[in-house]
Amino acid sequence: MTKKSTKSTAKAAAPAPAEVSKMNKTQLVEQVAEQTNLTKKQADEAISAMLDIVVGALKEGKNVGLPGLGTLSVKETAARTGVKPGTTEKIQIPAGKKVAFKVATTLKGTL
């Protein structure tokens, strides 16, 4: 009787991907209402007003600092040549703008 070498063919278990969850506006409104003793309607109006102000400031090209969270800013993108998906046709992508977010160091340290 000969002994066969048994190599472990089991691969190291890869960690399961973290379940991605998302907080929607309704859930945000509920939590703000609970923590501030505002009604849900008042909390919704306050959050909507804040978001309108942030969007307005970004449209004007201003940076928006959110203490403890980070900074939103508008960045210019350069015109460039790209390739059309599914074909090899080269296309010209025009210059534009994008919103960038830089995480606050205090938040980065706690994640």
Rank of each mutant, 00 (worst) to 15 (best):
L66I: 14
T87Q: 04
G61K: 14
A57T: 04
A49H: 08
G86A: 06
T87G: 08
P85W: 04
G65F: 14
T81W: 02
G65M: 15
I53T: 13
M50G: 15
G61C: 09
E60R: 13
T88L: 14
A46H: 11
V83H: 06
G70F: 08
G56F: 03
V54W: 00
A49P: 02
I93R: 03
K62L: 13
G65Q: 15
N63R: 08
G61W: 13
K84L: 15
E76I: 03
R80N: 02
L66G: 06
I47S: 10
G61T: 09
S48I: 00
V54E: 00
V54A: 02
K75S: 08
A79P: 01
A49R: 04
S73N: 07
G86V: 07
P67Y: 04
P85Q: 10
I91M: 09
P85L: 09
K75Q: 14
A79K: 02
T87W: 07
E76F: 03
A57W: 00
K84R: 15
G68Y: 05
G68H: 09
R80I: 04
G61E: 13
T81D: 03
L72I: 11
S73C: 02
P67G: 05
I91L: 10
S48T: 12
G65A: 15
A49Q: 06
L51T: 02
V55F: 01
A46M: 15
A57C: 10
V54F: 00
K59Y: 01
V74Y: 13
K84N: 15
R80M: 06
I93A: 03
D52H: 08
I91E: 05
R80E: 02
T77G: 11
L72V: 10
R80V: 02
A57P: 00
G56V: 10
M50S: 14
R80K: 13
G56S: 14
K59T: 04
K59N: 11
P85K: 10
L58H: 00
G86T: 03
K90I: 05
G65P: 14
E76L: 03
P67W: 03
G82Y: 06
L66P: 03
L51Y: 00
T77L: 07
S48H: 09
N63Y: 01
Q92A: 15
L72K: 13
L72P: 08
A78Q: 12
K62E: 14
P85N: 05
I47E: 05
G68L: 10
G56W: 08
A57Y: 01
A49T: 09
Q92G: 08
L69F: 14
I93G: 06
I91S: 01
V74K: 12
G82S: 12
I53Q: 12
T77C: 06
K84A: 14
T81G: 03
P85Y: 05
D52K: 13
T87R: 09
K75C: 11
L72F: 15
I47C: 07
